[in-house]
Amino acid sequence: MSKLFSAGLVLATGLVATVPAVAQEWPERPITIIAPAGAGGGTDATARLLALGLEEQLGQPVNVVNQGQGGGVVGFTSITTAEPDGYTLGVIYNFAHYSPMGQGDFDAEDLTPIGQFNFDPAGFHVRADSEWADINAALEAIKADPGAYDIACGGGCGGSWPLAFASLLDANDVDLSQVRMISGQGAAAALQEMVAGGFDVVPSSVPEAGSLIEAGLVRGLAVFGSERLEAFPDIPTLLEETGMELELGAWRGLVGPAGLPEDVTEKLKAALEVVYNDPEFQSAMTDRGFGLRWRDADAFGTFMADEESSVRELVRVLEL
C-alpha cells in the first residue's frame, strides 16, 4: 500500500510540476493578425511582412485576416474585444479619431501595445503652378485667411493625412474653425482634382503624389518627417523650411487586446524587435516604400495615449 501511495505521490508531483511548463509553451497553435484594412493596401502589406518574420520567431503559422469594413471599425472592434490569450493580435494605425467622431467605441486603453514598426510622413502638395513658392508662404497665406482655400481630406477628414495637416496649422496658430477641409474619394482622386483646379492643397503621403510630381503637375512643398525621403530628395523637411520639429503622418504598430498575459507580451515584444531589426524585413519594407520607425512597448503605449489626446482636441476644434 505504501509503495502504491509513494508511486501515486510521485506521479501527482510530476503532473503538478509540468503545469507551469505547459502554460509557458505559448504559442501552441496558429496566431491571427487582424488588419483593419482591405487587401492590397499599406496596412495589409506591412502586416503580411510582419507575419512572415513572426512565424519564424514564434514557430507557429501567423495568418493575416483583413477586416476593413466600416473604414476599419470592424477590425479595431475585433482586436479590442478578442480573447486576451495571444492568439488574436492586430496591426493598427492612427485610430484616435474614430471614437469622438462617433464611428467606433475603442480607445488606447483597450489595447496592449507590443511595438511600433512603421511611420510614413505626410506631405504638403500643391499644383505645379501654385502661387506659393514654399511652405512658409503657404502657411502665411492660410493663416491670414483660413477660409479662402480648399483643403482636400482625401477620404474622411479624420484620417491620418488631414489630421497631420491640421496639426501643422494648429502649430502655426491658424484658426482651425475657419479652415475648409473637404472629404472625398481618397488621396489619388483628390490629387487629380487639385491638378484640375479643384483644391489648393492635398495632404497625403509623398509616394501617393509621386507620379504627378514626376510629371511636373504637382509640387511637394514639405515632408512632415525628420529626414528627406530617398525617393524624393528635392522635397525639404518641415524642420528645414520652418524650424519646427514636427513628425506627422501615418504609423503602424503591433498590439493585442487589453489584458494580454505578461509572459505572452514579453515573448511578442522580443520577437517583434528581432523581426524589426532583420535586414530582410527592413529591405522588404523600404523596397515597397514604407518607412521604418521603432518604438518599444512602453514608448508606443505613451505615444498612442498622447496622440489620442491631441487628435481628439483637433477633432473637437474642427467640428468633425
Rank of each mutant, 00 (worst) to 15 (best):
S160L: 08
N66M: 11
L318F: 02
D150T: 05
I114L: 05
A17D: 07
V179W: 02
I182W: 08
A270I: 10
G243V: 11
R312P: 03
S211H: 10
K269N: 11
G198F: 10
V264R: 03
I31P: 01
A190I: 11
G291V: 14
D120S: 07
G38F: 11
G115N: 04
R127S: 10
A271L: 09
K267R: 11
S177C: 08
A17E: 08
T286Q: 11
A250G: 05
G291M: 08
E313S: 07
I235Y: 05
T81Q: 13
M101L: 09
R312V: 00
A187H: 14
G159F: 12
M244F: 10
A164N: 11
E83R: 03
L239E: 11
G41D: 15
T81P: 02
E273M: 06
G220Y: 09
D287N: 08
V201Q: 03
W251H: 08
G210R: 12
A128K: 12
R312L: 03
V65L: 10
V255Y: 00
L52A: 10
V202L: 14
P261G: 03
F106I: 00
D120C: 12
Y98R: 02
V10Q: 11
R180I: 05
F290R: 10
D175M: 02
S2D: 13
V22T: 09
P84W: 00
E240M: 06
F281N: 14
P27Q: 04
A196S: 12
P20V: 03
K143P: 07
S6Y: 14
P84T: 06
I182E: 04
L111V: 07
T112E: 10
D85W: 02
S167P: 01
L238R: 00
I31G: 08
H97S: 03
A7K: 12
L50S: 06
G301W: 01
F224M: 12
R295D: 01
A222E: 09
G198R: 14
C157W: 09
V315W: 03
E266R: 03
F117G: 00
E319R: 14
V16T: 14
E131L: 05
P203G: 12
G256S: 04
E25G: 06
G40R: 12
T88V: 05
G259L: 15
G104E: 02
A47C: 07
L169M: 10
S211R: 09
R288Y: 05
V223P: 08
V174H: 05
D296R: 07
S183R: 04
W251P: 09
R295N: 14
K143T: 15
L4C: 09
L191Q: 02
G70F: 09
D85C: 13
V195M: 15
G225F: 08
G104L: 01
P113Q: 05
Y276S: 02
L272V: 07
V73A: 08
E109H: 12
I79A: 00
G186V: 09
L111T: 00
W294G: 01
G289A: 06
I182Y: 02
A23V: 10
F199Q: 14
D107V: 01
N136L: 15
V274L: 15
L54F: 01
I135N: 00
L272C: 06
L9F: 08
Q192C: 14
P61D: 12
A96V: 07
F300G: 00
W132R: 12
G104R: 02
Q57H: 07
M304S: 01
E28V: 09
Q116R: 12
T81G: 04
T302I: 14
R127C: 11
T77F: 00
E25T: 03
G249F: 04
D134H: 01
G158P: 03
E245I: 12
